[in-house]
């Protein structure tokens, strides 16, 4: 599904190298988790993959189903099936949540040469999906993320994911700012989307999210590289002992 090879990235504004050769291969239908200390480059990886400005790729490649992502505009990556659930979802005053979602869904359908969803058909789908995430009609009407609590913002991210039905989902610290109940709700939303060949890359600091969203592989990232890969037990090891031993071992 997603193939990242020798990815090197630096900041555009200053001469600071963030990613120093990331290699990662995600097969269809699998769930990968990335853990790592602060500043190791996890969020940068998610931004570079989704096309945020401010970064320069100096080497390497990233392909989605064989197509090079790094040359594409962010909207083209989205239409190709990539989705990033933001760590800090952006507030957009003046744009209704519903309008935003419908514009996004139809823009992607149009880009893929599919027919746009009618207002009625869209409403039917979104009501059903919003209900599962306990998002009420009021929240759908409000401007995008404006005045939403931390939990509501993250649920709104998952609702967007459910509506857009991407092939490759990146979750950037989706657990941050969530209480236990909200984490369960969000995880259920993610788990409902598993299967059908859909892949996930879950970025997190904590093992507890991985109790709910069970990964097939766990990677440890430090100083711009993936330094260790294992199964779910690797997350448990980090939870107990921290990163120090793993980082020391890799050096």
């Amino acid at each position: 599904m997603l193939e990242i090879k020798n990815l090197h990235v630096k900041l555009e504004e200053e001469d600071k190298v963030i990613l120093k050769g990331v290699d990662l291969s995600i097969a269809p239908g699998t769930v990968h988790a990335i853990m790592g200390p602060n500043g190791s480059g996890k969020s940068t990886l998610s931004y570079v993959l989704s096309g945020k400005g401010g970064y320069v790729v100096t080497d390497g490649s990233a392909t989605l189903e064989g197509v090079e992502l790094l040359e594409m505009e962010p909207e083209a990556r989205a239409a190709a099936g990539l989705f990033l659930a933001f760590q800090y979802p952006v507030e957009i005053p003046g744009v209704g949540n519903m309008t935003f979602l419908r514009t996004a869904v139809n823009a992607q359908r149009k880009a893929r040469g599919e027919e746009e969803l009618s207002a009625g058909a869209f409403l039917k789908v979104i009501r059903e999906k919003a209900k599962a995430l306990q998002i009420d009609a009021e929240m759908l009407k409000r401007p995008v993320n404006v005045g939403f609590s931390g939990g509501e913002k993250k649920r709104n991210e998952i609702l967007q994911m459910a509506m857009l039905e991407p092939k490759m989902c990146i979750l950037d610290e989706t657990d941050s700012g969530l209480d236990v109940d909200a984490m369960k709700l969000v995880s259920e939303g993610v788990n409902a989307l598993r299967g059908a060949g859909r892949s996930f890359l879950v970025i997190t600091h904590y093992q507890r999210l991985l109790d709910h969203i069970k990964p097939d592989f766990v990677h440890i990232m430090a100083d711009g590289r993936i330094i260790k890969t294992g199964g779910p037990e690797l997350a448990l090891e980090v939870e107990e002992n921290g990163y120090a031993d793993i980082v020391a071992e890799a050096v």
Binding site: S50, G51, K52, P74, E75, A78, F86, V90, A104, V105
Partner: peptide, 16 residues
Amino acid sequence: IDENALFYLQSRGVPK
């Protein structure tokens, strides 16, 4: 224009 909002919309598939 708020660049973060612009990227957010683009990342959802809305052309620039």
